[in-house]
């Protein structure tokens, strides 16, 4: 990898880390999610700063091309992330459903009470 490309990639990763930290400080991101993004950013920086790190690890693990290892890790991590997202989406759906149900029943009860009060007047 040429030096200039390396520098550009490091700058992009730093911007990415800055964005992550900013959204944590603004409390846009829950801590448990933000840790994942922080670790990802730090790993990217390490891979860019330490020469031959990716190459050495991939040959150690038996990958023919370093890029294969990178793709492999990326795909696995992405799958894991998407799976977790669908799990938490389902949980939120359930909570949302229960809220709608309880509020609707409560509204009905309030209306019933109001009607009774009016009739008694």
């Amino acid at each position: 990898m040429s030096i200039s490309l390396n520098v550009v990639l490091i700058i992009i990763t730093l911007i990415y880390l800055f964005l992550v930290i900013r959204s944590i400080r603004k409390k846009n991101l829950q801590m448990s999610f933000s840790i994942f993004w922080l670790i990802t950013g730090i790993m990217l920086i390490l891979a860019l700063l330490i020469p031959n790190l990716v190459e050495n690890i991939s040959s150690l693990l038996g990958f023919e091309v370093p890029a294969n290892m990178v793709f492999c890790i990326t795909i696995f991590v992405s799958f894991y992330l998407i799976f977790n997202l669908t799990v938490s989406l389902s949980k939120e759906n359930k909570k949302n459903k229960e809220l709608i149900q309880e509020i609707s029943i409560l509204k009905k009860r309030v209306e019933d009470v109001e009607k009774k009060l009016e009739d008694n007047k």
């Binding site: 459903k97 709608i100 149900q101 309880e102 509020i103 609707s104 029943i105 509204k107 009905k108």
Partner: peptide, 24 residues
């Protein structure tokens, strides 16, 4: 006598609202 769901829930959620009402 009716309950007006503030959002569309689909058949399962709607029927369950009825069961919750019956229970309460």
């Amino acid at each position: 006598n009716h309950i007006n769901l503030i959002n569309n829930l689909g058949i399962g959620g709607a029927v369950q609202t009825g069961y919750k009402y019956a229970y309460q």
